[in-house]
Amino acid sequence: MSELLKISGLHATIDADGTPKEILRGIDLVIPPGEVHAIMGPNGCGKSTLSYVLAGRDDYEVTSGSALFSGKDLLTMEPEERAAAGLFLAFQSPVELPGVNNANFLRTAVNAVRRARGEPELDAVGFLKAVRAATKNLSMADDMLKRNVNVGFSGGEKKRNEVLQMTMLQPTLAILDETDSGLDVDALRIVAEGVQNLRSPNFSALVITHHQKLLDYLGPDRVHVMAKGRIIRSGGPELAKQINEEGYAAFLKEAA
């Protein structure tokens, strides 16, 4: 199949004090298997909304359009069904779960997803082995597994924890919502390597970012520029470089 994700004419609104406000105004986007795509755009253009709508957050209402994931209608699926189907969202602000042990959370999630995929669940030993290998790759301290999910984590630790979850859940499409924000150079490299390690013909990524740096590591196949709820320009990696040098102004003028 040449289309892992196919978004057509997607419109979505959010409730703003009783009146629906349109954030996505007709998104068209195709991501084939094995490709890394980047979405760039000024603040408020709808990038994060797109990621939430794809992951199934119910604050948003899809008013028209469609999104097919491996040929299935993504928009009618529950969030956990999307996760089981292979869609992973790395949150811009990972949520804290007080009292919930990180390792326990991860194991519960991994086994829920494996169950849904018809794969055998991991026992304690198997899980521990897998997670140790993953934390090592991400240069994460072992004690991060013992702490509560994201509680008291630094910005960098939270992002690494997201990549750890991504590694363990083995998605076919990862949406990284500004995963690079607030990271120093070393952390950025580790996160990028975490994503690179998953690169395969069966893994695609949609990277939402403001910065050239992460894209330098990942080498995206396509770059899309988003503004006012639409993709106004798509191109190769050179587009990211152009934005980095010239900013969005030129594109916005062009689109207006």
Binding site: E80, F91, P94, T108, A112
Partner: peptide
């Protein structure tokens, strides 16, 4: 919290169970 757990593949019931036990 609910959405985060469900995005990671947990059912609604499991998610609440997990959060309540954490609480």
């Amino acid at each position: 919290q609910m959405f985060y757990c469900r995005q990671r593949g947990l059912s609604e019931e499991d998610a609440v169970g997990l959060i309540v036990n954490g609480f």
